[in-house]
Structure formats: C-alpha cells, structure tokens
Design a protein around this nucleic acid. Structure first.
Lengths: 227, 227
DNA sequence: CGAATAGTGTCTGTTAGACATTATCGA
DNA sequence: TCGATAATGTCTAACAGACACTATTCG
C-alpha cells in the first residue's frame, strides 16, 4: 500500500444553493470565516464529520442548516470533484450537491450571506465556479422533463406563476397549452379547493400545491417541454 | 475544527465495468487479493493515489488498467457513496464510475476476473450491489436518448447489430424505422465505404463506424426512443 | 362595460410506429 | 428461383405548438 505515507485526502461537501429572484436563478454564497480564502465568497461547504454524518448527504444538510439557515430543501448529489490542485491544503475531494429553495426561505439579510445571479458571479475560490456551472446546467436539463422547478416556488402558487418559473430556469418562453398538459401529465399538483389569487383586474388564477408524495422528490415525464 | 481527532476518511474509487454478452448486460468483477473481503468477487476499485492521480478519474483509469486490463473505454462518473458502515475499515467515500467496453476487449479468461450477468449477481461486498444497480439504471436511462450503447460495440458494426445492442440494454424491442431515424439524427455514425457484411444468405448489411469526434463521447437527442 | 389575464377548445404541422415494398445476398 | 434479411417508402396515430375563444375579476 501507498496511502499511509501521505497526508489524508481532504474530504468535504459543497452545496450550490439555488433560488429564484427577479425571474433569474441566483446562488446563495457564504463569506468564509476561516482559511483558506478567509473572507471570500464561496459555496457553503465543510468537512465531513465522521462522528455525526451517516453519509455525505448528512454533511450537506448540516452545512445548509449551519451556514445558510436552510432546513429540508430539495437536495440532490451533483458530482464529485477531486485532485491535488483544487484546494491549497492538499489533495482533496468535494462531494457537490445542489439545493433548490424558494426565495422566502433564504435569510437574505444575513451578514455572512450573499444572493448573486448565477450567470454573473465573481471568480470563486477553489473550483466553485465550475461547480456552479455544473449545477445550473443540471437544473436546466432536468427542468425540461421533470417537476424540479416547483421546488423554487413557495407552498402555494398559480400555474401562470409556475410557468414563469420554468421560463426563468429554461431561459426561453414555454407554450401555455403544452405547459399545462405537461403539468397535468406529471400529476404532482393539486388545486387548493376554492382558493383563488384575487385582487387583480382579471380573471383570478387557481392556486395549487404540490401533492404530499412529491414534496421532496420529482415527477418525471418521458418527453420534455419543447425547444 | 473536528476532523483531526479522527482517522482519515478512506477515499477510494470503484468501477462498474459493463459489457454485452449473449444479448445481456454483464459486469466484470474482480477477485479481491487483500482484506477486507479477500477472495470475494467485487467491483474493481482501489485507493486514490495522491502522488500519481490528478483526480478520481485518473484513479478509475488506473484501476481499470491494472485490475481488468482495459485501456481507454467509455468512462463516466456515476455517483459517490459514503458513510461509516459501507467499509469495515471505517468512514469511507467511494467515487463510483461506470465504463462500457465491447466483450472482445475483456480478458474473459483471466483467473482473477469474472463476467457475470448484471441482473443475476451474487451478493457483493461493501455496497457494490447497490452501485451496480445505479450503473445499470443510469445506462438504461441514457440509452433512451443517446449514443451510449455504441461503446458496447466493436469498431465496425451493422445497424441491425447496433439495434440488437440497444434492445438488449433497454430490455425491449425497438422499432426499426424509428431506430434508424434516431441514429441518423444523432449523426455519429458513418458508413464504411464499400464494406458490407457478406457471407449470409440475405442482402448484406452496410458496416458503420463511430465518427472520430464521438469515439470517447456521446451524441444526445432531444426526444428518446419510444417505450 | 372595458381592460387584463386565466383557462380551454381546436386546428395543424411534426414525429414516431406499423406495415408494406423493394433490394441483394447465398444456396 | 427461393428464402432470408437489409433497407426504404408510406400510411396513420399521437403529440406539441399556434391560435382563438370564453371566463372572470377590478375599476
């Protein structure tokens, strides 16, 4: 064996916490409170804790709670990045996750957090810029054929609101009729009985919520939304 | 900080090496030559080597070469599994990859290797059974809308042969006309000029090969092959 | 009532699958 | 010439997108 003569591999998790603001995907970044890159904005992340984590996902959940004040968002493993150069401390592994959360749940005023547009980020430490790219691209692809974007909405929303969320994530307009057929096919929404979005000078929209069995998961469709 | 008082996280890679035999996906397993589970069949895997690996993928390539005698197959990261219980030596991370290779390139007679059907495997050590499930499911999903299965073919093949490969991977028959339209759309094949598969009592089939620019990558299509 | 947007009906072009037809080999 | 399979043409059913029409609210 060989490993014993070398320092341990540095084993961390990093989370791309995504939310929607002004119809654009934003990333929640965290001001680092220790070296390396102390004071820089970076993805919330941290070491795996052997004594408390039953797996890397536990570490990601803990990081989201402790560093971003977020509990139980939609969370999925993204990729694992590794190598000798990505962390100045040595050969490292980062198990990267992405999370989706409605803006209302983000503590936007916290001094150690920033919410920045995903497509206009400053240079980030480590390979965090690359990780954000991977996350955004994964979210875009999955949004074509799944219910992923509903996790960017709050508990109650109208179909026109949800369509706007899809359009923001996909970066292109979506046909209304096709969109509604697709949502129907995904079968993950239920109308909230008798609840309408009143107060505007037009026909009020029906309010919907995600069915209980899809709250922390996805519904997939065979064929995606067009273009 | 916390990590210093604990033993290092065990950092390994494991590779699900898939091939096609008798129209069924098979996994190449490796007889372990050291503890734990010495002598048991398991996925080819090993430690990350800090001094030679520029990343986990390098480790996967090295493992494939050293343990399975395979060079430069199609290789893609699958998932990362981790936790305190999956390896008896302690808290461990396995960065799992899957690889596709034509049967001709597998050293099927090597004493330390076994080629077993993916859907009828014995119980494997660690969580390798779970990793194989993930790999097979990933390959099935990707085969619906990509050129992934061509990596199970040799250099030259006919369209009927390739269709049989798709059907084996997907586990269901594929419409011939749709299949050919899809291959055409993927635009990754080129006929080998004047080369036909002669010798049988019927019209000979045109031989094709993968275009150079797709040799180690994929071509994706918007809409997949049907059910 | 008029403006505005929600929600739905319907038409049409595109695409996938079923089926039929032609092509080309060995025997 | 026959049997077999490759390769392709064509019809049809399913589906997505465009468009238009109806519904319902506020002012």
């Amino acid at each position: 064996m060989v490993a014993d003569s070398y320092p341990p591999v540095i084993c961390t998790v990093d989370v791309v916490l995504l939310t929607l603001r002004d119809d654009a995907l934003h990333v929640v970044l965290h001001k680092r409170d220790r070296e390396p890159f102390r004071g820089a904005l970076a993805l919330p992340g941290g070491y795996v804790h052997q004594q408390e984590d039953q797996g890397a996902e536990d570490a990601a959940v803990r990081v989201l709670r402790d560093k971003a004040g977020i509990a139980s968002p939609y969370l999925e493993q993204l990729a694992t990045l590794s190598g000798p150069g990505r962390d100045p401390r040595g050969w490292s592994v980062s198990i990267a996750y992405y999370a989706l959360v409605p803006l209302q749940l983000v503590p936007v005023d916290a001094a150690h957090l920033r919410v920045l547009p995903a497509d206009r980020l400053p240079t980030l430490p480590f390979d965090h810029g690359r990780i954000v790219e991977l996350a955004v691209s994964r979210v875009r692809v999955k949004s074509h054929y799944s219910s992923l974007p509903v996790h960017l909405c709050g508990e109650r929303f109208t179909l026109p609101q949800l369509q706007a969320v899809y359009e923001a994530v996909l970066g292109e307009p979506v046909n209304k009729v096709s969109f509604r057929r697709k949502m129907d096919e995904l079968a993950m929404l239920e109308p909230i009985d008798g609840e309408l979005e009143l107060g505007r000078a037009n026909r009020p929209a029906q309010l919907y919520r995600v069915r209980r069995e899809f709250r922390r998961t996805l519904s997939l469709s065979e064929r995606g939304l067009g273009t």
